[in-house]
Amino acid sequence: MIIHRVIRKVQRFQGWFGGGAALCIIAGLYIGLIGSPPDYYQGEVVRIMYVHVPLAHTSLFAYIVLSIGSMWYLWKRDPIVDNMCHAVAAIGAIFTTLALATGMIWGKPTWNTWWTWDARLTSYTIMLMILIGYLMLRTFIDDSEKEARYAAVLAILGLVDLPIIHFSVEWWRTLHQPQSISMRGVSISSGILIPLMCMSIGMSLLFSYMLMVRTQLLYLDRLLHAKKGRLMSQFHMSKTDP
């Protein structure tokens, strides 16, 4: 139950995470959208990168948290870890969707297409499918212990699968067509790096803040259900008393 105590202890600082996230994101957006010069190659379009790249990094981080949490749950069977996994999957799905959407908006003027079956895009989309399948699976199970166990099994299988998916998709694309579009050779200048770092830290803090709030919400929800069950049974007992 050590993780339980750690989570409860960290929860106390959630306000700091939220405040820090707001500060970093506001500062990052200000420098990124107004303060920094437009990119030499991409012009004003590059500014969406300040949102897109942090979102993409954070959503990968979400999957790492999810898989570690799932393994921990199968090992220790601590319900609050399961609440955390549930929360991180939902937040990860939102971040992944937003990262894909901002990427598409960036792709339209840059690549002249909304979508291309590029290796990274494809494996990222499959990751989103697995996350959505994970969330759907959870809604279809009534028993909360079983729900946690099955969800953890699915998350671990997904974790094992992700590198294989990534490599197979990469081979598949490179065999068909040479990489037509790449960002390589474009080094990052400090004018871009500072707002990017700012937004990355901000997004990670925002992610942690959302994770804490949602974990707490699910935790309290579970307590409430347990309490409700107890009250209901007491009520029935008192009615059957003569």
Partner: peptide, 9 residues
């Protein structure tokens, strides 16, 4: 829904 994304490789 669960199986097909997993067997993409």
């Amino acid at each position: 829904i669960l199986l097909l994304p997993m067997v993409v490789p």
